[in-house]
Design a protein around this nucleic acid. Structure first.
Lengths: 384, 384
DNA sequence: CCCATGTATGTAATCGCTTACAATCGATGA
DNA sequence: TCATCGATTGTAAGCGATTACATACATGGG
């Protein structure tokens, strides 16, 4: 089962080609090719002979040759930031299932949030002749979009949606989603927020959600204290660490609600809170993003926003397949990111008695009429 | 940015080819090709001209043509059961990182544990001319192995290792890993076990772990009550349901330890236990498999076996790359699956007073001297 | 009975690149 | 000084398919 080092051999040793099949079936290569691509162009009788020849010889079509001759690779590329994030593995699983059904194969690349790598990966995939390309996000360099234009291949920006986007997109409105979150918290009576998010500089979805958060807060006359804005990796550990850092800051008034960049961070915060004996949501409310499988199992169940991960994969596939089939299809697909209130959010605690620090006067005026308080343990008000 | 329907166009409209570059640089296509593949074969001066031409024209090599001409695709295929399982997404992420570094691209396929689909995917990838192939598991049909043989492409069975395997493998000994788990539980004093695992008929790792479990139990004179063996999907929900089913069985004596097929199932069991007020590990011990990120954060932290997911990806890549480079390399790579005792396992509760059922005599003789009891809350005895 | 039409097949020209082989040229050693 | 050699470069024959175009044979309407 050993093989010559770097396959420098010219003709593949004893390879079965169209020619072989054609000879065995007593027809021309063109006929065999027709059988392969448009069987109905071949008569019943010949069809049988060719089929038998292919089976007997164990013929496998040479994909590169087909691609070269037909200028179609039957391959679709997808570039996602990482597979270590469950939302992307769900997305890709679903994407793959759908393109496979249509006879396409997936060429996958990840870039671990390094935008230069993303660009290189795109080049590689285009070089490989993908017939279409699925991307994540929409903020990319002019050079990147120029490349896409030059390649003249259908593509779609997933996980984003804007009514006025210049490019095909398939996702949801991140700003609106966070507005919903902020409104929920403000309604509960929260006025002081911490935000523990991803890195906005390399992730435009994070940037959009952050912008949405700021806008929504502003609409309620609240300004985000920049000290309470942390950018961290997506991991339980960094969620935990974030909570420790927030506490160490000792900002007054202390935030009564933490908006986490995703459910993994939020879960980390929950774990750390439990370890430190901090009551969630009694003392502090926590909101996540994404609605991961684990989220409704957490203690307390996590209030979050359900991101339509599977649906994004499906609809992106659908869009690209339509384009490839020459069908008319909407350029922008908006999906729903439903808010899922659960047990990790509740009204803030009653204003604490003036903190131990003698110097700081208790802030008062800022706090408007808080809505009627509910018992802190009012959990799982979620639809699920 | 629209494109002709099904790219039936012969020559790609106005495509930049080697020819174009060659003309612009005033050299032959052979020279440009050499520049691309073995730059040192080209003189400094010409190298500069070619480089400039490529840059100016935005030339992208046509991969299919290269593959056809050189009989090397610089693509490596990987087939995994699913990406929805974090161990495989970690595996693939790591695998991809390493092959990318060596200039290869990943062609990925999943089969969702449907072995027929797996076979088809293998055919597709080989048809696409992958230079090498990474698989999961080792139990496959003769036809499958015949296909691999015929394709004459290096491949490796990952997630499995046996000293006497006929094929290259990169993984660990599942039987031994479960033996370690069983020994741990028996040492703690457990005698009655439940097993909630995946589906052994379509997953040879599950089968091997189950075999290991049975053997280890037998070595301690214990037989697994088949009613306490459940096969379920890998999800929190099925873990929860499994615990409910186990309780509904009302087998006597009730199992004091549950061996779960992976950490997701184990976590589900933990969640359900908490919901039902069952003390873990006080009333029942739970062991998982895989050491997922979440596992040490659970309450109690989950005793489990760490599977070397990242390392498997890395070493599998290493093996295949070595083969492709013509380097000698060991055919079987054994990795460590370390046992991680944590808080979810403890000695069983003191033998309950004879169960409410009047008819059943309390089993006695079976129970040998249980080791000294530790307080049920003795948690986090873990190394980490 | 003839020709237009349709169906089934064959012929052969690509597709864009790699690479064996040949050619050129200055430098080197006998 | 001449054959040899190494370093560069060019020429052109494929790689294994697809597909435009040509051909061959029935069929049927006029």
């Amino acid at each position: 089962m050993q093989r010559s080092p770097a396959g420098r051999n010219r003709a593949r040793r004893g390879a079965v080609t169209l020619q072989t099949v054609a000879e065995k079936a007593g027809v021309s290569t063109a006929t065999v090719s027709r059988f392969l691509n448009d069987a109905h162009l071949v008569s019943q009788e010949v069809r049988g002979r060719v089929e038998a020849a292919i089976r007997d010889l164990g013929y496998i079509p040479h994909h590169a040759a087909r691609t070269l001759a037909s200028n179609r690779s039957r391959t679709i590329g997808a570039i996602v930031p990482t597979l270590d994030n469950a939302i992307f593995s769900s997305h890709i699983t679903s994407f793959q299932k759908h393109i496979t059904k249509a006879g396409y194969t997936l060429l996958l690349a990840t870039f671990e949030y390094d935008l230069e790598v993303e660009f290189k990966q795109a080049q590689t995939l285009l070089e490989r002749g993908v017939d279409a390309l699925s991307l994540v996000g929409e903020r990319r360099s002019d050079a990147f979009y120029a490349l896409l234009e030059r390649a003249d291949v259908p593509f779609v920006n997933t996980w984003v949606w804007r009514a006025d986007s210049r490019y095909p997109c398939c996702g949801f409105d991140h700003e609106a989603a966070l507005k919903r979150v902020v409104d929920h918290l403000v309604e509960l009576g929260h006025r002081t927020f911490a935000v523990v998010t991803g890195f906005a500089d390399r992730n435009d979805r994070v940037a959009a959600r952050l912008a949405g958060t700021r806008q929504a807060l502003a609409a309620h006359g609240i300004t985000l204290d920049e000290r309470l804005l942390l950018s961290v990796e997506y991991s339980y550990a960094s969620g935990r660490e974030a909570l420790r850092r927030l506490r160490a800051l000792d900002v007054t008034p202390a935030p009564t609600a933490i908006i986490a960049g995703n459910d993994v961070i939020a879960a980390g915060i929950l774990f750390e809170a439990k370890a430190q004996g901090i009551d969630v949501p009694g003392t502090v409310s926590v909101v996540g993003f994404g609605d991961y499988d684990i989220s409704k199992e957490l203690d307390p169940p996590l209030t979050t926003v359900r991101s339509p991960k599977t649906e994004i994969g499906e609809r992106a596939a659908e869009y690209l397949l339509s384009r490839l089939a020459g069908r008319e299809t909407p350029e922008r697909v908006e999906l729903e990111a439903r808010f899922c209130p659960r047990g990790s959010t509740a009204p803030p605690p009653a204003p604490a008695p003036a903190p131990a620090k003698p110097a700081s006067p208790p802030p008062s005026g800022a706090r408007k009429a808080a809505p009627k308080r509910r018992p802190a343990k009012s959990r799982s008000r979620s639809a699920d």
